[in-house]
Design a protein around this nucleic acid. Structure first.
Lengths: 157, 157
DNA sequence: ACACCTTAGTTCGAATTTGAACAACAGGAG
DNA sequence: CTCCTGTTGTTCAAATTCGAACTAAGGTGT
C-alpha cells in the first residue's frame, strides 16, 4: 500500500528547516538584487556571470558550461550574455575545437566592473548571512547544502 | 582607514557555505518548479500562495500580509492572485474594516487543488532536501536560517 | 473640519525568464 | 563515406517579475 498510502508530511522541525530555507533564500535574493543594482547597475545574475568567468581559467567559458554553473536556462544565458556584451563587460569568441561552440570571455572592462562591485556585495553577504551564523553553523550549512547540491546535480543527468 | 580598507573576503569555509546556499537554492527551485507545473499545472509561487492562505485562519489573508509572507512585490502578487482567480482557486473579497483592503480567500476548489498537489510536492522536498540531511543538520539549518530570516526581516522595517 | 503624511492595491511599461522549435554541427556505428 | 543520434547556441512567443506612478482611503494633529 506504499505508493497510494498517506504521504509523509513534514514534522515541525523539518517544516521549520524548509520554510527557513525558502524564506531566507527569497529575502536574501531580494536584498542582494537591490544592492547590486543600486551600487553597480548589475543584476545578481549578471554579477554571477562575471564571477564565474573570472574564476575560470582564461576568464572564459563555453556557454553551456556557464549555464550549468549558474543553474539557468540556455536561452536565459544567451540573453544575459548579449546584455553584458552590449555594455562591454563580456565578449563572445568562437570555440576553436567546436565550430558550434561559443566562448564567453571576460573583458578588461568586465574585470574592472567586477573589482568595483565585489566589495559591496561581499560585505552585504557577510552582514546578512555569514556573520549571523556561528562557525559551526557555517560548517554544517556548507556540508549539508553541498550534499543537497550534489544530490540535485546527479538526477539531472 | 576602515571604510576604505581592503574588504574582508570570504574564507574557504564561508565561500563554500555561500556557494552551497545559492546553488542548492537555484537547483531546488528549478526542480520543484518543473514538478509542480507538470503534476498540477501550478507554479511554485502559486502553490505557495495556496499554502499560505490554507494556513491562515479562515483561509484568507489581506493582500499586503500575503505579499510579506511570500516575499514578493505587491504588483507581482496582484498578478498571481488574478491568475488564480481566473482558474477559480482563489476569490477576492473586500475587507470589512478597511475599504481599501482586499482579502484573498481560498475557494473550495483551491483547497482541493492544494490537497491534490501537496503530496507530490512534499515528497520531492523530502527526497531532495530533508532526507539528504541528518537530524542534526536539519536542526542547525532551521535555527540558522531562521536567524538569518529574522535578521533580514528586521532591516526591512 | 482641515491639511498632511502614510498605507492599500492596482495599473502600466520595461526587463527578464522559460521551454519549445529550430538550424548547424559533432561523433560514432555500420 | 553515410546515416543517426545527441549537442550547441539562438530565436521566438508567452508568461512572469519588478519598480514607479497612480487612485483612493486611513489616521493624525491642529
Amino acid at each position: 500500500m506504499s505508493p497510494l498510502s498517506e504521504p509523509r508530511w513534514l514534522d515541525p522541525d523539518e517544516a521549520a528547516a524548509w520554510r527557513g530555507f525558502v524564506t531566507a533564500s527569497n529575502l536574501l535574493n531580494r536584498r542582494l538584487e537591490r544592492q547590486l543594482k543600486e551600487d553597480s547597475g548589475l543584476s545578481h545574475q549578471q554579477y554571477e556571470i562575471l564571477v564565474h568567468l573570472s574564476a575560470a581559467p582564461g576568464g572564459s567559458l563555453r556557454m553551456t558550461e556557464l549555464a550549468d554553473n549558474l543553474v539557468t536556462s540556455k536561452s536565459g544565458l544567451t540573453y544575459q550574455v548579449t546584455q553584458l556584451e552590449r555594455i562591454g563587460l563580456v565578449a563572445r569568441r568562437s570555440c576553436p575545437s567546436d565550430i558550434r561552440g561559443v566562448i564567453a570571455e571576460l573583458t578588461d572592462q568586465g574585470r574592472e566592473a567586477l573589482r568595483q562591485a565585489a566589495p559591496g556585495h561581499v560585505a552585504l553577504v557577510r552582514e546578512l548571512l555569514i556573520d549571523v551564523l556561528s562557525r559551526e553553523q557555517l560548517a554544517v550549512l556548507a556540508e549539508g547544502l553541498g550534499a543537497v547540491s550534489a544530490r540535485l546535480r546527479l538526477d539531472e543527468a
